[in-house]
Design a protein around this nucleic acid. Structure first.
Length: 424
RNA sequence: GGAGAGAUGUCCGAGUGGUUUAAGGAGCUGGUCUUGAAAACCAGUGAUACCGCAAGGUACCGGGGGUUCGAAUCCCUCUCUCUCCGCCA
């Protein structure tokens, strides 16, 4: 959510930003309602001032046993008038907030302008795309042949876009979770949290999933609970409505969670394999930082996520998302893309974003820059560190051997109980 | 699921319709005293949001609604916390 005053004073800038994003925002109506809102507040508060004064007078007269009926009559009318203004004000503010909630964040100045992911800009690469002297297989074929991935049974039990992991496959998933959590807690200084997998509407609104993207989320019928699409939601909302002590910033959390996404609008895309599932596991990095440090923290956070892929020996590249591909709440995002032989290209495995104060304003998370100073919004950041399912897919494909077995990356062997290779 | 008790400012905690438009205490800030500190004493103190160029004003006693000239206080409703009982991984 953007600041009302900021929009009021920077209409051109906001309008430009929307254009760059190919997004729409009802700025004309916003400005009109903003004007009306302030006028209603003025009128209502004027009358309240009068009422407060007269009410004191009535109390005094009553103590003196004097007649007050003419005053109470008068105030009855004033009360009605106030109520009228306040009711209209409430309507105006609701509409205003509705518009505000649907305006995306303003991209940072150094974000490249572009229409789609074709215009994202590669920043760096690590490793070389894997080459094979045999016919390389896709992870969905290889995984089923090895008996470690079983989407058919999942389809029987639940439906499409779910998978049973079995044997060494299930072990690999668990090993990756533990490996990543250990790396980020012991080497990168993140504090581990294990969040609830369901949150209520306010939390989903705080991080920006709602109200605009409700169709992407799984809602629990008969409740106001949503399955979390990422641990970002519960972990960011841990601090909702709080003023944080400046000395504890930056706060760095790492959280493992399952993630649930309806994938509305993705029908027919990535239908095979682990790339796009309704439920997947992810280790998420979340930070709360001082505004002046948030872009340094974004670089560090991205590096922390990259370290996972380096240690696993998976080739990847980092791209900065262009304005047209940027997520709704984000001011700047780096995607880390891992080499996926079956796709013949790099595939997103992590998305690291600085939301600046966009989420903090929605969720009301502040800090005090200095003692006695006015509290101001923190900057929130997060990134996958990294998506587990896609890592499993990447390991299967990049570490496949000619005989159809899969070598386990060295760093992962201790987490696999010493298993160095997955075979039939 | 049943029965009951709560939610007040940074914290503790009074307050059942108008000298409470929130007492008192703690904390914090400043001062007096002291070689310094502690203690004591004195004074100040909403780290809130909004409207306004400002002066100032309005709102805010868990959330929402109602009664009233006037609500922290009365009524309705929701959320959360705690205690006891039942059930349960």
């Amino acid at each position: 959510m953007l600041d009302i005053k900021f929009i009021r004073n920077n209409v051109e800038l906001v309008s430009e930003a929307l254009k760059k994003r190919n997004a729409e925002g009802n700025l004309d109506e916003f400005l009109k309602l903003d004007e009306e809102r302030r006028e209603l507040i003025r009128k209502s508060e004027d009358l309240k001032k009068t009422r407060n004064a007269v009410t004191q007078e009535i109390a005094k007269l009553k103590r003196e046993k004097k007649d007050i009926t003419h005053l109470t009559q008068e105030m009855k009318e004033v009360g009605k008038e106030i109520k009228g203004y306040d009711e209209r004000l409430k309507q105006v503010e609701e509409r205003l907030q509705g518009i505000l909630f649907e305006i995306p964040n303003i991209p940072n100045a150094d974000v490249p302008v572009g229409d789609s992911d074709d215009d994202n800009v590669e920043i760096r690469r690590w490793g070389e795309p894997s080459k094979f002297d045999f016919e390389a297989k896709a992870h969905w074929d290889l995984g089923e042949e090895l008996g470690i991935l079983d989407p058919k049974t999942a389809a029987k039990v639940t439906g499409a876009r779910f998978t049973f992991l079995k044997g060494a496959g299930a072990r690999l998933e668990r090993a990756l979770v533990n490996f990543m959590l250990d790396l980020h807690t012991t080497e990168h200084g993140y504090t581990e949290v294990f969040p609830p997998y369901m949150v209520h509407r306010r939390s989903m609104t705080g991080t920006g999933q709602l109200p605009k993207f409700e169709e992407d989320a799984f809602k629990i019928q008969g409740t106001d609970y949503f399955m979390i699409p990422t641990a970002e939601v519960p972990v960011t909302n841990m601090y909702r409505g709080e003023i944080l002590d400046r000395d504890i910033l930056p706060i760095k959390h790492v959280a493992y969670s399952a993630c649930f996404r309806a994938e509305a609008g993705s029908a027919g895309r990535d239908t095979r394999g682990l790339i796009r599932q309704h439920q997947f596991n992810k280790v998420e990095l979340v930070k709360f930082a001082k505004p002046e440090e948030s872009y340094d923290e974004l670089e560090k956070l991205t590096n922390d996520a990259e370290e996972v892929l380096k240690k696993l020996g998976l080739p990847y590249r980092v791209v900065v998302l262009c304005t047209g591909d940027l997520g709704f709440s984000s001011a700047k995002t780096y995607d880390i893309e891992v080499w996926m032989p079956s796709y013949g290209r790099y595939v997103e495995i992590s998305s690291c974003s600085n939301f600046e104060d966009f989420q903090a304003r929605r969720a009301d998370i502040k800090y005090r820059p200095a003692k006695g100073e006015k509290a101001t919004y923190v900057h929130t950041l997060n990134g996958s560190g990294v998506a587990i399912g896609r890592t499993v897919a990447a390991i299967i494909e990049n570490y496949q051997q000619k005989d159809g077995s899969i070598e386990i990356p060295e760093a992962l062997v201790p987490y696999m109980g010493g298993i160095e290779r997955i075979t039939k």
